Each structure stands twice: as structure tokens, then as C-alpha cells.
Amino acid sequence: MTRRSDRPIRLAVYLPDLSGGGAERLHVRLAPYLLDQGFEVTLLLDRARGELMEAVPAGCRIVALGADRQIKALPKLVSFLKRGRPDVLLANMEHMNVMAVLARRLAKVPTRIVATQHNAFSEQVKRPSWQWRALPRVYRLAMPHVAGLVAVSAGVADDLTAATGLDRNRMTVIHNGVVTEDFAERAGARPEHPWFAEARPVVLGVGRLVAQKDFATLVAAFAKVAAATDARLVIHGEGPLRGALEAQIAALGLGERVALPGFTANPLAALAHARLFALSSRFEGFGNVVAEALACGTPVVSTDCPHGPAEILEAGRHGRLVPVGDAEALGAALSEALREPRDPAPLRARGNAFTVAHCAAQYADLFRTVLEASERKAGRDG
């Protein structure tokens, strides 16, 4: 058997596309570090699209399966595994994790599968379709066959065990990396929205305009803040709930105090210039933007949602935590934080614990570990 140390490790990272989601952004950021460590990196996509396509680093290959639905990807994934024979396939998203296990079995290749759990599993399976309702049972059958199982926070790992019965000891917690080498440069850029250049304090929210992020509670909380201060609220993001949020803002008479400027390619500029960052999510997997806000030195008020923010904030040591869906408590915490003197140094120190370099090193160590275990097993069996 050829030892893997004699050649670069072939790594394929399986994603739906390169849209601006947290998992996609993470792996585009990890790619150059893994390339520097000698990995051959392929971004394996169901669909070749997304705003991050232009951000893929030189030396990183893109392979698109051309599948518009997950089930249609299966035969193409099998073909890729037979043809490309990667040493490791790093799968992301719940159904892709299952599909990777099945494809490897059908392809009959020695590729090691590492599955990643990016979000709270128990929340994901509440979606109203049989594919999600069946997922706990499917996970119990499929996940014992992966070589590695990554959870992006300890809370996500605990939740996955509670929801599926999978062995918590087989999971590896790797916090997402958000601090890049050009972090300070991006944070120092001029924000797109003009309110950040004015003297009045700005409270900032960032995320897709979807139910998970619960911006309706943030807007309701800010109405209480607006009644007693001259602060403004900016929510960067786009999504299907824009119309409902705009109607809520109008009904509360906040049209001159709340802005929904849409997606921004560089949220760090806004985070660095905001007086406060507010996370109102019902659930998270990690909460990248919380770590980014801290690394910018910006105070954070967050819901104590499952899972991630409380780990990042160390149970409230580095920011305020409030109950999920409680506009009264969120408004009070925002008002208190606006009055409190700002010391960015300890916040930056905590945020800088979440570097992309450290995250990449942990993934690289895991890949090498699962391959070494595979080689030892092959030696015993051979």
C-alpha cells in the first residue's frame, strides 16, 4: 500500500454551491490554509453558482456535479468518487452528509467521509417535510459509517447526541474560524450605509431575513430603545421576510430609525463602526458574526439561543445574553449596553481566539488522523 505521506492528501469539500452562507464562506476561507499545508483541495458543488465563486483561491479546483436536487446528485457523486478517488470527502449539511456515506458505499472506494454538523439538528428536523422528519433515524443508520464527525460547537454536538443517540465521544468540536489575515483591513473599510458616518449610535443586525434570525423581535425590542434614545438600527441581509419586516417597521413608526439596506459583501466594516451588535436568533450552530463583532471590539447583545453564542461569549462574560423571543429583555439589554462605557480590548482578545488559521489546523489534524487510522486498519487487515 502506498503511504499517503508520499503524496499530497486529496481533499474534496462537498457543498451545495458557493452562496454566501456560513458554511460556504468558512470553507472558501479555509482553502488557502489547507493548500499551504500541502492538501490538494477540490470544492465539489452540486451547482456552480454563488457570490463566493470569485473568492475561491488560486490552486483550488472547482468541480460541479450539475444537480438541481440532492437526490439527483447521488449518481454523479458516485461517479466523482470512482474517478477522482479523494482521500477525504468533507461533507456539509445534513442530507449531504447522508448522501456522502451512501455514495461511498456504492462507489466502493477507500475515501474517508468526514461529516459536519453546522446547525442545531433538533431545530433543523422540525421542518415540515418527511425528508426532515425521517432524518434522525437516517442519521442513526448513516453516521456510524463516517470516519469523522465535526460539530461547530459543543452545544451542537450535545444536541446531535440528544436527538439521534449518536456517540458524543466520536464527535470533534471545531469552532468556526472568522479572523483572517486581512481582517483588520476589511474592518477598517468605510461602511456602505451613511448612518455609520454620523454621530448617533447605530445598533447592527446581520443575517438572512428568515424566521431563524427572528429580526421581528429585534425590531420590536429596538422600538423600546428608540423611544428613549436617538439610536438607529441597521439590519444587513436579504431574504423572504423583507416585506413582513418592512410592514412591522412602518407600523411601529420606525421608518426613519430602522434601515434594511440588504446584503453587504463586507459586514466587518459595519460591525467595526456600530455601537452595538445584536443577535436575535432563535437558534444557531455557532454564530460567526458574534465572533466577528468581538474581534472588531464591538459590544454584543445576543439571545441565549441553542447553540454557539453562549460558548463564544463564555456564558455572558464577553457580552449580554437574553432569552429567545423576549423583546422586553432584548430592548432592556440594548439600552444598558448603549449606556455602558466601551472597552474594546478584551472583546478583541476573545474574538481573536477564532482565527481561520487555527480552525484550518484543527481540520487538517483531523483529516490526517482519520487517514492514519485507516492505514493502520488496512495494515492489520492486509
Rank of each mutant, 00 (worst) to 15 (best):
A364L: 14
W132N: 01
V98R: 12
L279R: 07
V150S: 00
A293Q: 05
E314L: 03
A58P: 10
L271N: 00
L135V: 03
R186W: 01
L26K: 11
T2V: 13
Q248T: 08
L252D: 13
E51D: 11
G50S: 09
A333S: 08
A184H: 07
R140P: 02
G319A: 03
L276T: 01
G207V: 10
T111C: 08
R49K: 14
T298H: 04
T42C: 01
Q117W: 12
G188A: 05
P191G: 12
P346Q: 07
L330R: 10
L141Q: 07
E340S: 05
D343I: 12
P341L: 07
A353V: 14
A162V: 08
V109R: 14
P75D: 00
L209Y: 00
E94C: 03
D381K: 15
K377C: 02
P323W: 01
P346C: 06
T180M: 04
T164F: 03
A189H: 04
L260S: 15
W132F: 11
V13P: 00
R200H: 12
G255V: 11
F286C: 05
R257I: 00
C305P: 00
F367Q: 09
V152F: 02
G38M: 04
L135N: 03
L271E: 09
H118G: 06
E198C: 09
R83Q: 09
S19P: 11
A315N: 12
R105S: 11
R85F: 07
Q212L: 07
R257M: 05
G287W: 13
K72D: 13
R127Y: 08
C60E: 02
R49N: 13
Q362Y: 13
V234K: 09
G351E: 03
Q362E: 15
R242P: 10
D17K: 13
M171V: 04
A250H: 07
S281M: 07
R85T: 02
L149R: 10
G237C: 12
R282Y: 03
R350T: 07
A115L: 04
E340R: 12
L260N: 14
V178Y: 03
G379F: 13
I9E: 11
F196A: 02
G287A: 11
T2D: 11
A364C: 09
A327S: 05
A327F: 02
R104L: 02
D230S: 04
R320K: 14
R47Q: 14
Q37P: 08
T369R: 12
